[in-house]
Design a binder for these strands. Structure first.
Length: 113
DNA sequence: GCAATGACGCTCT
DNA sequence: CAGAGCGCCATTG
């Protein structure tokens, strides 16, 4: 099997993420058909480029934090993009998964306007 | 083929 | 609520 096939699936799920909303790696992995493989999701996204057609910036960890990979370049860009979509960060740089979390676990009434 | 690493998740403290 | 430790698995060297 081609490992790229798995990546493709993950990218597809990430593309399904509605604007103004964020999804966790576990969520992506589950929807991608890889329950429990949250790490591989991160791997797949890491292989992506900052200019990739995939909204990787909407993917964060379960803590609602932006996972830093190595440098502080793309990370800041991710936060900037999310803020541009209407996602608010707290002082700790965390996002309210209970509100912005995908699958509308609770609040989707905010809409993305 | 084996060993080490890693955009993570979950539980305990 | 925040931080640290442990675990699961695929990718890379």
């Amino acid at each position: 099997m081609s490992p790229s096939d798995n990546y493709r699936r993950i990218y597809h799920v990430v593309r399904r993420i509605p604007p103004g909303r964020v999804a966790t790696y576990g969520q992506i992995a589950k929807l991608a058909g890889l329950p429990g493989h949250a790490r591989q999701v991160g791997y797949a996204l890491h292989a992506l480029d900052t200019a990739s057609p995939v909204p990787w910036h909407r993917v964060i960890n379960a803590k609602g934090r932006i996972s830093l990979r190595s440098k502080s370049g793309p990370d800041l860009e991710q936060r900037m993009r999310l803020e541009a979509e209407g996602v608010r960060f707290d002082a700790g740089g965390r996002v309210r998964l209970d509100e912005y979390g995908w699958s509308g676990s609770g609040t989707r009434a905010l809409e993305w306007r």
